Computed example of a mutant assay.
Amino acid sequence: MALPASALASVRRTCSSGTRGFTLIEVMVVVAIIGILAAIGMPAYSDYIRRSELPEAFSTLASQRVAMEQYYQDNRQYGTNTCGEGKIKFSDQPATGAKFSYACKLSGNNGNQAYTLTATGTSGHTKGHDYTLNEAGEQGTTQFKGAVTSKACWLKRGTEC
């Protein structure tokens, strides 16, 4: 027994109109997947940006150590009152673009035979990072990701040297 033509047309219209678009459940599943990916990706991206800003401190400390050693070769001391008697520049970055501030402290028997260079994070992802370098070339991390530490290396990624 065959259906009349008018009934068949009515069935076709109903079936074809029901298959358009997405259901609410499908949309919610997609939104949930995007949320999970964002929750995983954002911390990883933030850590990547932080690690890309740390080499500024490492290169500046290393170059300032070279300058201090050159000053020592000429004067047989690292300075009488200040490191290199003010001839050593401790920040070669413009004040608006620097991610670290730099300092030098003289020490030793006569107060001028040893020094410690320090880089302290000042902005963005570098806040909470402090690195040191002394006349013996010993690297140190005193603060990493906001936590106080005393590692004998420059921490970049994890908490172990």
Rank of each mutant, 00 (worst) to 15 (best):
F58D: 10
K99V: 12
A67Q: 04
E56M: 13
Q93S: 12
N81H: 13
A95D: 11
S46C: 11
R76M: 08
T96K: 14
Y71L: 00
V66R: 08
G79N: 01
T116F: 00
S107I: 06
R50M: 09
K89Y: 05
G97R: 14
A103V: 05
T82D: 13
S46N: 12
K99E: 11
P94N: 15
S63F: 04
E56K: 13
G97F: 14
G79V: 00
Y71S: 00
K87R: 13
A114F: 05
S107D: 11
A114D: 11
T60G: 07
S101Y: 06
E85V: 02
Y48N: 14
L61S: 01
T116Y: 02
G108C: 07
N112T: 03
T82L: 10
A57N: 01
L61C: 01
F100W: 06
I88G: 00
L54H: 09
D47M: 15
S63T: 08
T60A: 05
A62V: 01
N75L: 04
A57Q: 00
E53P: 04
Y71H: 01
E53M: 04
G108Y: 07
L61K: 03
S91W: 08
R50Q: 07
L54G: 05
T80I: 07
D74E: 12
A98L: 15
A67L: 03
E56P: 15
M68S: 02
L106G: 00
P55E: 05
F90M: 09
Q113H: 08
K99I: 13
F100M: 05
L106C: 01
D74M: 14
Y115E: 03
S52F: 08
A57P: 03
S101D: 12
N112D: 06
Q113E: 14
R50I: 06
Y115T: 04
R50D: 06
Y72M: 02
C83R: 00
S46G: 08
Q93V: 12
N110P: 09
P55K: 04
R65F: 08
G111S: 06
D47S: 15
A62N: 09
A95F: 07
E69D: 12
Y115V: 04
L106M: 01
Q73R: 10
T80E: 08
R76K: 07
Q113N: 08
E56V: 13
I49H: 05
G86V: 01
T96H: 07
L61H: 03
M68E: 01
M68C: 06
G86D: 07
Y78R: 00
S107W: 02
K89W: 06
N112R: 03
Q113V: 10
G111L: 03
D92F: 04
A103F: 11
R51C: 10
G84C: 05
Y48I: 10
V66G: 09
V66K: 11
G111V: 03
S46A: 15
I49D: 06
S107K: 04
L106F: 00
Q77R: 09
Q93K: 15
N112G: 11
